[in-house]
Simulated assay, not measured.
Amino acid sequence: MKKPTSPALADATASPPGSPHSSLSLARRLRLQQLVLFERVVETGSILAASRELALTQPAVSKSLHQLEQQLNGLLFVRSKRGVVLTEFGSLFERHTKTVLAELRHMAQDLNGWQTGSSGHVVVGTLIVASATLLPEAITRLRKAVPDVVITVRVGPNSTLFPALARGELDVVVGVLPDGASTLLRDEIERTRLTHVPLYEEAMCVVVGKGNALMRRRKLRLADLHALEWIVPTQESVAYASVRSFFEKEGLAMPRRVVESVSILTNLGLLASSSVVALMPQSAAERFAQAGLLGILPLEGPGPFCEVGYTIRSDRAPSAATQRLLAALHDAGHRLHRSH
């Protein structure tokens, strides 16, 4: 005689179509490994690629995803010969999956920090203003104090970094603190999750490649350079308004020949291989000039155009490793402020 299935076991497979989800029902049905598999398939865009990364067979990954869709009563992916694409329902589930997995990472950090007192993992988001001076110096200070802490640096615009921080994918964002930065976030809940901490003000200066003939000029006017090709920040960057004002104060429009870029490597490559002129954050320009990678022209650039600092979540305490990095950022920021 077939034994009756208990309600708990029945709930562990799938809910009847249309039945409402609850935190208890999801906790019974979902497995954390399924979320990891789902995330890797989303990141790679392919079940085959995800199975290789996770050292699993493709049928095993496909079966797990099929079970996940049954448990959620919804289609997560549209499958094709080229890979998989998230459905609208899948995108909704992805947003919550990222938060759950980020919290698991924070839990692992806290447990490791409690047990060892000197280890952990900090994920930092940054852009050009901080990535050339402030962040490297802070990381160097941190590594001397706690060499076992792992630092992961992710580069991107604030419009990407701030929402990632609010979701818990980053521990801290280091760089420009723009006015109205919270408008880059999706809703009021995310806006209230972030705290911005300024460290110092940043100015800009005009730079060229080290071998540029302009380096031999003792006196220069902005009008002398206006017709040249310029590297300027992208229009959505915080610095763009200050750059436009810089030219307008001299009665000039924005140059016609421009490359809009906030990529350090691209800008340095252009400066080294051409006669292009660039506007660059002062702290970064001085660091590169000391390394012999560029020259700073005797031309007064825009004054302080932004505050540089860091942004953290306000609704959760930083891990021990993150707190050590924040202390190192304060020390490095204080030194940079005194040097200017």
Rank of each mutant, 00 (worst) to 15 (best):
F38N: 07
I312R: 01
Q71V: 07
R191S: 05
S319T: 15
V259R: 09
L32K: 07
S263V: 04
A164I: 07
K98S: 09
A213K: 06
S15Q: 14
V262C: 09
A10T: 13
V277A: 04
M215T: 12
P157Q: 04
V262N: 04
Q115D: 12
T311D: 01
G292F: 04
T13I: 15
G333P: 00
V41L: 07
L222R: 12
E300K: 08
P304A: 12
L30F: 14
R217N: 05
L135W: 03
R335L: 15
V122L: 00
I139S: 02
L142T: 01
A138K: 01
V262R: 01
Q109G: 06
S19G: 08
K81M: 09
R324M: 10
E236G: 11
I47N: 00
S23V: 14
M1L: 11
E169M: 13
T5I: 13
A321Y: 06
H121F: 04
S131W: 01
T99Y: 04
S118V: 09
N112M: 13
V174T: 05
V146N: 09
G168Q: 11
Y200N: 02
D331I: 02
T152A: 11
V243N: 02
A138R: 00
L336W: 03
V41F: 08
D171E: 10
L56N: 01
G180Q: 01
R40H: 14
Q33I: 12
P4T: 12
A10M: 13
K98P: 03
S80P: 06
T152Y: 05
L86P: 00
L270V: 06
K249A: 14
R79K: 15
T183F: 07
H334G: 13
L56D: 03
P178C: 09
G83M: 06
G74I: 04
L325Y: 02
T195V: 14
P136K: 02
